[in-house]
Design a protein around this nucleic acid. Structure first.
Length: 584
RNA sequence: GCGAGUGUAGCACAAUGGAUAGUGUAGUGGCCUCCGAAGCCAUUGAUCCGGGUUCGACUCCCGGCACUCGCACCA
């Protein structure tokens, strides 16, 4: 019998079974298996501690009883009781090598993970920029975090629907169409449509702010658009087509491909049902001319309304989001919906989810698991929202161009002998990966400081450090002219070194890291793992020469190198990064 | 005013109620006739304040403080 891909869940099952034999299961025992501090073991089970508290018994004694039931695991682990009642599991070297031999490709790692969420469908709503504007740095996080979440869910076996929920139907179009009708510069439109749309939007926005009469006119343009006015629809379509074309080049660079681009406009004819059903269910009411939902039991939302139809009759964010959730539940049969936006929309989504729960319950609809994945602001080094020197917004296109440029300068400084075309290709991978990784590597809840030097300098927890490990491993195989597949690993006379063991142990923890990242919808847990793995590899690489004379030792070390390579690559791909470089 | 998020070394960040709070950078001291030194090894330095719950608290609860953000027709 071999160890399965997910060692932690295997242990969890074994500990739960042992507890069941002791009669603990019905009394609230939880195994609480997690990755351990290497000083104590590879995994630990802490369940005896909490259980002892609940039972008012000595935790150490309960730990001892549990330990006595775990004999079957002795094939794979050295097991010990420690401290107040921790049970530590340390994988035996043979078990470690067995696991490594069994998981020999990205495909096998993926199939090993795919049982966790098999059969589930998840709709992930991310990126979702407003059309008529260029994407700026503020759009980076939703796109990058959303894509990583999609890939993590897929890795765990879920069917993922990637939906770009464009802001293509809001009030900005009233202002934009108002300006378009009066101030369009045809020459500028032909030269750079997005630029001209941005100019018109600013013009319309300023005019509406300065003059209530203009605002009223702009609102009328929106009402006409939402009512299907042909002329306004034509302008709207022109704007959207130009915007989408520009977005597409950004998505291509970030490795993002949407299954659907169902913007707010798609739900225009679906909001009437929302109004009707919410009204019938007694959830929506008229207030100050608008249709709103209050939540009486909520301390704040009992007085802070969720406005689902404006007093001028137009739909808004709330109405289209309600219609969107229903569509996702009915049409995609979603088991889960993840919406990735910044934290400032937290109130909106709390109100939305409360409303959905009541609405779906009233109609007997099945409610998907709802997640609002929030993230903080990208800050400049002055601690304020990231801006250009003259206070403008930083366009995503320019940001990625600069990342590539900086990466190119660095590759050129380090390795001037590589042909320029290859240096450009390397810079494309490293530059974009650095930006993606810098965003993913921190807990998304906090703001983060965007610092070019730290991001591209390739030291510490950066994409380049990980890609450097990838390049070095490829280099070993290139120099040795060896095929890494399934080398013989037994019979080595030299004992396995601490660095080899450290690396092997880290590799086995890959599944635990992906589980943690996907269960919390926080990709930084995977980043942290990959960084530690690359660190273990670097330490191993410095301490133990791979290409040594003794065949069995060489084979064992090549096995470690190869498995490190595939785990690093699988992990980086899960984050949405490219790894197709052989040197850098 | 009400609410949410965030406060961890000089700076930037980790820590799913667990064992001695981890890393990077900056500083200090080592390591290339040896598979890539964009590297490795060692070392200095921190939980906003005050209570509480717990065998155990950066983590949970209560009260403050600071910063950011949200709160009737933007998305």
């Amino acid at each position: 019998m071999d160890l399965p891909f997910n060692v932690a869940s295997h242990l969890e099952n074994a500990v739960a079974a042992a507890a069941a034999r002791l009669g603990w299961t019905g009394r609230g025992f939880e195994p609480e298996v997690r990755v351990a501090d290497p000083a104590h073991g590879d995994f630990q089970a802490n369940g005896a501690l909490a259980f002892a508290k609940k039972e008012r018994q000595n935790p150490r004694a309960l730990g001892q009883q549990l330990l006595a039931e775990l004999g079957g695991l002795g094939v794979f682990f050295d097991i010990s009781l420690a401290g107040p009642g921790f049970i530590n599991f340390r994988l035996k070297p043979e078990a470690l090598l067995g696991w490594l031999l069994a998981h020999d490709s990205e495909e096998h790692l993926t199939s090993g993970a795919a049982s966790a969420r098999r059969g589930q469908t998840w709709v992930v709503d991310y990126s979702s920029p407003n059309t008529a504007k260029q994407m700026h740095v503020g759009h980076l996080r939703s796109a990058v975090i959303g894509e990583a979440i999609c890939r993590l869910l897929e890795f765990c076996g879920a069917k993922v629907v990637r939906d770009n929920h464009l802001g293509d139907w809001g009030t900005q179009f009233g202002k934009l169409i108002w300006a378009y009708r009066r101030h369009l510069d045809e020459a500028a439109l032909a030269a750079d449509p997005l630029n001209e749309f941005e100019r018109l939007y600013k013009l319309g926005n300023n005019a509406a702010e300065a003059d209530p009469a203009v605002l009223a006119e702009a609102q009328q343009e929106l009402v006409k658009l939402q009512a299907g006015d042909a002329a306004n629809l034509a302008i709207w379509k022109k704007i959207n087509d130009a915007s989408l074309a520009a977005f597409q080049s950004i998505y291509a660079q970030l490795g993002i491909r949407f299954d659907f681009t169902l913007g707010e406009s798609f739900y225009n004819d679906k909001v009437e049902r929302v109004y009707r059903e919410l009204t019938e269910a007694g959830l929506a009411q008229e207030s100050q001319g608008a249709l709103v939902v209050f939540h009486e039991q909520h301390p704040r939302f009992k007085t802070q309304p969720f406005i689902i139809r404006k007093k001028d009759g137009a739909a808004n964010y709330a109405s289209s989001d309600l219609a969107t959730a229903l569509y996702r539940a009915e049409h995609f049969r979603a088991d889960g919906i993840v919406v990735v936006t910044d934290f400032r929309q937290a109130d909106h989504f709390e109100q939305l989810f409360l409303t959905l729960a009541k609405w779906f319950a009233a109609r007997g609809y099945r409610l998907p698991e709802l997640h609002h994945v929030t993230f903080g602001t990208v800050l400049g080094e002055d601690g304020k929202a990231l801006r250009t020197r003259d206070g403008g917004t930083i366009r995503l296109k320019e940001l990625l161009d600069e990342a590539r440029g900086r990466a190119f300068d660095l590759v050129t400084a380090k390795n001037p002998d590589i042909p320029e075309a290859e240096r450009r290709a390397i810079a494309g991978i490293v530059g974009v990966a650095s930006v993606q990784y810098a965003d993913l590597a921190q807990n998304r809840s906090s703001d983060y400081v965007f610092a070019w030097d730290k991001m591209i300098s390739l030291e510490g927890n950066t994409a380049a450090y990980l890609l450097y490990a990838v390049a070095r491993i490829r280099s070993i195989f290139r120099k040795a002219d060896l095929d890494p597949a399934n080398p013989p690993v037994t019979g080595a006379s030299a004992p396995i070194t601490p660095q080899e063991l450290g690396l092997a142990r880290k590799l086995v923890q890959f599944s635990a890291a992906t589980q943690l990242a996907v269960n919390t919808l926080r990709p930084h847990f995977l980043c942290l793992y990959l960084y530690e793995l690359a660190g273990e590899f670097s330490a191993f690489y410095a301490a133990d020469k791979v290409i040594v004379d003794e065949p069995a030792v060489r084979a064992r070390r090549l096995l470690l190198c190869h498995r490190t390579l595939i785990v690093l690559e699988t992990g980086l791909h899960l984050l949405g990064l490219r790894t197709d470089l052989t040197r850098m």
